[in-house]
């Protein structure tokens, strides 16, 4: 996973509420057995409109997406995060996310920034003409107009994103604790192991 610290660039002023992962990447794109190339299917339905935001020259390869409440709701498909990453998105800024989507984003080096609606409204305005700067280390979103918004992030997620960390390697360091838990349930709750093989 690519580490992420500072991202500066144009931000797609999307802003819609309750955008589900079926909208981010329709089901027909889920038949792949690879993580690559899903940017082509990202927001496919919306991009059928020739005047869509995503394909305007100023937002091509924009690293930031500004969205509305409950972004990424619905299906758990990680293809949504893969598709955004393939589009070039490194940061999403929204008032809230579905729990599954924000987890998937972090695991793919995409920073989900949470800011209140008033800040989103201001950033949507700035994004129409100017770039936006996101700094994960200082947990701030800034603009050249002296806007400065601070955001909270779970410290574990921050650490993973800053270091581009592979969670499986991290968990493997807890081998002894996992083995101890397995031993405990095998003794105390043997019925937890499925009865037939």
């Amino acid at each position: 996973m690519t580490p992420i610290e500072k991202v500066e660039g144009r931000a797609i002023p999307f802003g819609l509420k309750n955008v589900d992962t079926d909208v981010i990447i329709p089901a027909k794109w889920l038949k792949t057995i690879s993580r690559e190339g899903l940017g082509r299917g990202a927001f496919e339905t919306l991009r059928a409109d020739p005047d869509n935001l995503f394909d305007r020259p100023e937002y091509k390869q924009a690293p930031i997406l500004i969205a509305g409440d409950n972004f990424g709701c619905g299906s758990s498909r990680e293809h949504a995060a893969w598709a955004l990453g393939d589009l070039g998105i490194r940061v999403v800024i929204a008032p809230s996310y579905s729990d599954i989507f924000s987890g998937n984003a972090v695991k793919n080096g995409i920073l989900p920034v949470v800011l209140p609606q008033a800040a989103i409204d201001r950033l949507l305005e700035v994004a129409a003409t100017d770039p936006i700067h996101v700094d994960l280390d200082t947990q701030t979103v800034t603009t050249r107009f002296q806007d400065r918004f601070s955001f909270d992030i779970d410290p574990f997620r921050k650490m993973c994103l800053l270091n581009g960390l592979d969670e499986i390697s991290l968990t493997e360091k807890s081998e002894a604790a996992i083995a101890a838990h397995e031993k405990k349930i095998a003794t105390d709750q043997p019925w937890l192991i499925p009865a037939i093989l």
Partner: peptide, 23 residues
């Protein structure tokens, strides 16, 4: 019981655990 993304599927296959914050 809850849904997970593919990275978490791999994490569970490899370690039978997940890193989670309490809800």
């Amino acid at each position: 019981a809850f849904g997970i993304g593919t990275s978490e599927v791999e994490h569970v296959l490899a370690t039978q655990t997940l890193l989670l914050q309490p809800a």
